[in-house]
Simulated assay, not measured.
Amino acid sequence: MKLTIPTWLTLLRILMIPVLVLVFYLPFQWTNFATALVFAFASITDWLDGWIARKYHQYSAFGAFLDPVADKLMVAVALFLIVQGHPTPWMAFWAAVIVGREIAVSALREWMAELGQRATVRVAAIGKIKTVAQMVALLCLLYSVTPDQPPRPLPWLGHEIFVIGDYLLAIAAILTLWSGLLYLRAAWPIMRAAEKNKY
């Protein structure tokens, strides 16, 4: 199996997940900045591998499988770290909504692929908007949340970075539910037809 540059970047993103966890728990003043930097770098590799794949036609079946897995792992781990650093009911709820939706939509896509209807649940525009809001929110929250301490007062443009991240995460979670319902709505007729064909 030949590994393309985009696939190597995806593998690098997966390898950065334990680095993210390790840096988050380091007992230094600069760890919040370093944690956000690691996550930002991982997000850049996510954009870069897609750009290289499209521009230079470096596609592979393994890369197509691995890329969404790497994205979901990175987001899930970042959410777990944020909830551990700021364990409030709302933060846990938004994290559960995002992770739960990703699991449900991944299962839906896999099932639709088995029916030869994967294009029915392709990424919609609202999903892309959700991804941007989610990534910015996680970056802000990782920058301002540390283990066993309240959010650090880090003013930026007249606002607390934590507050910005908190609101953006809520928006991302709402968009996550919305886009998930759109996926389900698009797939529902095919699911009903497949169910009828059984009998």
Score class of each variant (00 low, 15 high):
Ala53Thr: 03
Ala53Ile: 00
Lys55Ile: 06
His57Ser: 05
His57Thr: 00
Tyr59Lys: 05
Tyr59Gly: 04
Ser60Lys: 01
Ser60Ala: 10
Ser60Gly: 13
Ala61Gln: 15
Ala64Pro: 00
Ala64Tyr: 05
Ala64Val: 04
Leu66Ala: 11
Leu66Lys: 02
Asp67Thr: 02
Asp67Met: 01
Pro68Glu: 09
Val69Ala: 02
Val69Thr: 02
Ala70Ser: 08
Ala70Lys: 03
Ala70Thr: 08
Asp71Tyr: 12
Asp71Val: 10
Leu73Phe: 14
Met74Val: 02
Val75Pro: 14
Val75Arg: 11
Ala76Gln: 08
Val77Tyr: 07
Ala78Gly: 06
Leu79Tyr: 08
Leu79Arg: 07
Leu81Met: 12
Leu81Glu: 07
Leu81Lys: 13
Val83Ser: 14
Val83Trp: 09
Gly85Cys: 12
Gly85Thr: 06
His86Ala: 10
His86Phe: 10
Pro87Phe: 08
Thr88His: 04
Thr88Trp: 00
Thr88Glu: 08
Pro89Met: 03
Trp90Ile: 06
Met91Leu: 09
Met91Asp: 02
Ala92Lys: 09
Phe93Gly: 01
Trp94Gln: 00
Trp94Asn: 05
Ala96Leu: 14
Ala96His: 05
Ala96Asn: 11
Ala96Glu: 02
Val97Met: 07
Val97Gly: 01
Ile98Arg: 11
Val99Ile: 15
Val99Phe: 13
Gly100Ala: 10
Gly100Ile: 05
Arg101Ile: 13
Glu102Met: 09
Glu102Thr: 05
Ile103Phe: 14
Ile103Val: 15
Ile103Tyr: 08
